[in-house]
């Protein structure tokens, strides 16, 4: 029997802002690209996101953070994934991320960082090319 792997992506909105239009557009585009997208909704804590990522066995976690709290939330997600032994999961962020913060986020292992100007095509392409294949 052949193995037919489908990329599974968890999309989550940690923190307090309630704008989920963008993340829903991304979710639909990823589905159009043939992926399974697990959307967990608004106001997620890093603990909830990481537990969902484990249970859903995703290879990609996409965070949408518009509240400005990315420097607190994103490293926490990466750290918890590491604690769970799931550091192979690709973590990306979309949102309002100032240029100055990017090097710090990249240093902790976050790979796709998508600012306001990013098109959904760019995000889909990045995930297609960078989702870990095990």
């Amino acid at each position: 029997m052949a193995s037919d792997r489908i990329v599974r992506v968890l999309l989550a909105k940690p923190g307090l802002d309630g704008h989920d239009r963008g993340i829903k557009v991304v979710a639909r585009s990823l589905r159009e690209a043939g992926m399974e997208v697990i959307y967990t909704g608004l106001h997620q804590t890093p603990e909830q996101i990481v537990e969902a990522a484990i249970q859903e066995d995703v290879s990609v976690v996409g965070l949408s953070i518009l509240s400005g709290a990315h420097m607190a939330l994103a490293p926490r997600v990466v750290e918890l994934l590491k604690e769970e032994g799931a550091k192979d999961i690709l973590v990306t962020i979309g949102g309002i991320i100032p240029e100055d913060d990017i090097p710090e986020l990249e240093k902790i292992g976050i790979k796709g960082i998508f600012g306001p100007g990013t098109t959904t095509e760019e995000i889909v392409e990045f995930i297609v090319n960078n989702a870990p294949k095990d």
Partner: peptide, 25 residues
């Protein structure tokens, strides 16, 4: 496309960190 939007977890967040609950989409 073979893709899917799996949104059931949105309504199941109360148990997201309970280790005695395992949810799979």
């Amino acid at each position: 496309t073979g893709g899917a939007l799996l949104g059931d977890r949105i309504r199941m967040q109360s148990h997201a960190t309970d280790k005695e609950v395992f949810i799979r989409s």
